[in-house]
Amino acid sequence: MRTLVRPAVLKTPRGRLVYWSLFTVAIILFTVAFIIPLYWMVTGGLKSSAEVARNPPTYIPEEFHPSNYSDTWDRLELAQYFGNTVVLIGGAWLLGLAIQLPAAYALSKLRPRFGNIVLGLMLVTLMVPATALLIPTYLTVTDVPFLGLNLINNPAAVWLPAAANAFNIYVLKNFFDQIPDELLDAARIDGAGAFTTMWRIILPLSRPIIAVVSILSITALWRDFLWPMVVLPDPAKQPITVYLQRIADTTSLNMLIAGMVLASIPLVVVFLIFQRHILAGLTAGSLKG
């Protein structure tokens, strides 16, 4: 195994000192790079409007105003827009799993006749910039093929494009490929069909990767701004990211920053709760034995 420090050198006191010193410095630098923006955002919500706009800025608030957060929640009516966001993300997440899991299972284990062609076409879509697909996708949701439906100001305009995620299907398929076919053969011998095999064998073994795909989807949807703004022009149906931008010109800076902090809390909580599942899913299937 090749490493930055030879094992023989690492066993010496000097080698351990150099190694742990560099490791500690690297960890501190990366931590500071992530913490400083969060610190500025959180403390900005605690300052008065005049102090936030001061130049040069104050590193520590001269006067703490924790009531800014409660005032922001009440005055900006954030509860309504948090609710809109949860509806959009929850529906897109559930519909995405309902489409992506069977699709990945079919490509991995059922092996349809033109499965490789379908997979190749899906991977080609990953090479196309998202902005290039904006207009075609918009035209699709304004006049859904074969149904003739206009989904503008409808949550389905966010759900359907988010559910058709080629990257998630590819990640799930790669994980399903690591599951031994002998398990599926045993289930078929016992009389289980394709759906039963997926539900009772594949999905229980795939919890780590499902958690990873779910977190990636929820994070991307929560941060998305352009697409919800385009397909949800009605202010009462917009998610919190679009709402905060819409009121930016008429809201004091400290309240706007406090709103951004409140909008970020759910993502941080979700990551802290599911971080073990994320790490397990990232390493799942990397070792055989």
Rank of each mutant, 00 (worst) to 15 (best):
T3G: 14
R6T: 14
K11F: 10
P13Q: 00
R14K: 12
G15L: 03
V18N: 09
L22S: 09
T31G: 08
V32R: 10
I36S: 02
P37K: 11
M41C: 08
M41E: 07
V42I: 15
G45I: 00
G45R: 01
S48V: 06
A50H: 09
A53H: 03
R54Y: 05
Y59I: 15
I60M: 11
I60F: 08
P61S: 14
F64R: 12
S67Y: 04
S67D: 07
Y69M: 06
R75K: 13
L76T: 02
L78N: 05
V86W: 01
G90T: 05
L95T: 04
P102C: 14
Y105K: 05
S108F: 02
L119S: 06
G120P: 07
V124I: 12
L126T: 13
P129Q: 01
T131R: 04
I135C: 06
P136Q: 04
T137Y: 00
Y138F: 14
L139K: 10
L139P: 02
V141D: 00
F146M: 14
N150D: 12
L151G: 05
L151I: 09
A162M: 12
F167T: 12
F167C: 13
F176D: 07
R188S: 14
D190L: 10
D190A: 03
D190S: 10
G191H: 11
G191P: 09
P208N: 01
I210P: 12
V212I: 05
I215D: 03
I218E: 04
W222C: 08
V231E: 08
V231D: 09
I240M: 01
L244K: 07
Q245Y: 09
S252L: 11
P266M: 12
V270P: 02
L272Y: 11
G281P: 07
L282A: 07
T283P: 03
